[in-house]
């Protein structure tokens, strides 16, 4: 775990983010900050609104109220693909892989999509293939995640742990400044989770990417996160250094009490 860098500038500032589904308030005036390079954990019981928060941050849902500022720009009304190109990568709690494509193709698509628009004219001139630089980057990320040996396999043949790594790799392709990881350890066994923690640390150390990590696995939280936010019923229950937050009696009652 790296020491929290309290002098780093704010990468993302979320203010009073609110999202309703019909009568249900999934996010209720949520505010939080992420500094450049920092790792923030988000915990909370099922239905707390964690995934909805990610959807609002990455642009898959639009919030009803509140602002999101990323790198000094307001992004809360921006299309998801624009946010991605600005440098927000994410994974999904429920895997969202490109069924039928190989592992390498997953990364290649992300790499190309991040840099360009649809290159229809190049395609029609038969120049739509990947450039050496793009392939290089794909190979690099495959190596980083230890996916080289399955590069040419369709994702449907992978086990869950590997599949989650493919999602991580895909999110890393555009060299993002912020990674949103939605329960990356869910469905993984202990060994896989430990490897994931190491991989994450490795990735952060090399790229300095900031991470927001939604997790139920407190070991993983402890291993990765500097600073913890607790969500409950769409509200921020606590926000602060990991150790302090986990010691907070109210947090223990609302969340950990239910687990213990």
């Amino acid at each position: 775990m790296t020491a929290p860098n309290l002098t780093a500038p704010n990468l993302m500032v979320v203010t009073d983010l609110t999202k309703r589904f019909g009568g249900l308030v999934a996010l209720d005036a949520v505010s939080l900050q992420v500094r450049a390079g920092e790792a923030v954990g988000v915990i909370g019981p099922n239905g707390a609104g964690k995934s909805t928060l990610f959807n609002c941050l990455s642009g898959l849902e639009s919030p009803d109220a509140g602002t999101v500022i990323f790198c000094g720009r307001r992004i809360d009304r921006m299309a998801a693909w624009r946010r991605s190109r600005l440098g927000i990568g994410r994974t999904f709690q429920r895997l969202e892989l490109f069924e039928g494509m190989t592992v390498a193709d997953h990364l290649l698509v992300a790499e190309q999509a991040h840099t360009g628009t649809v290159r229809i004219w190049r395609d029609l001139l038969h120049r739509g293939g990947p450039s050496p630089a793009e392939l290089d980057h794909v190979r690099q990320v495959l190596g980083l995640l230890g996916l080289d040996d399955v590069a040419d396999q369709p994702v449907a043949t992978l086990d869950l742990g590997r599949a989650r790594l493919v999602e991580l790799g895909r999110a890393l392709m555009g060299a993002p400044r912020l990674l949103l990881l939605d329960e990356p350890s869910s469905g993984l066994d202990v060994a896989d989770t430990r490897r994931l923690a190491e991989t994450l640390a490795d990735v952060r150390q090399r790229s300095g990417v900031a991470v927001v990590l939604v997790e139920h696995d407190l070991d993983l939280i402890h291993a990765v996160v500097d600073h913890l936010v607790v969500l409950d019923l769409g509200r921020v229950l606590a926000d602060g250094p990991t150790v302090e937050v986990l010691a907070d009696p109210e947090v223990r009652r609302a969340y950990l009490g239910a687990l213990a």
């Binding site: 998801a80 693909w81 999904f92 490109f98 999509a113 999110a171």
Partner: peptide, 11 residues
């Protein structure tokens, strides 16, 4: 075709 959500989230 594989995932519209993931596609837009990679740009």
């Amino acid at each position: 075709r594989g995932s519209e959500l993931a596609s837009s989230s990679v740009g």
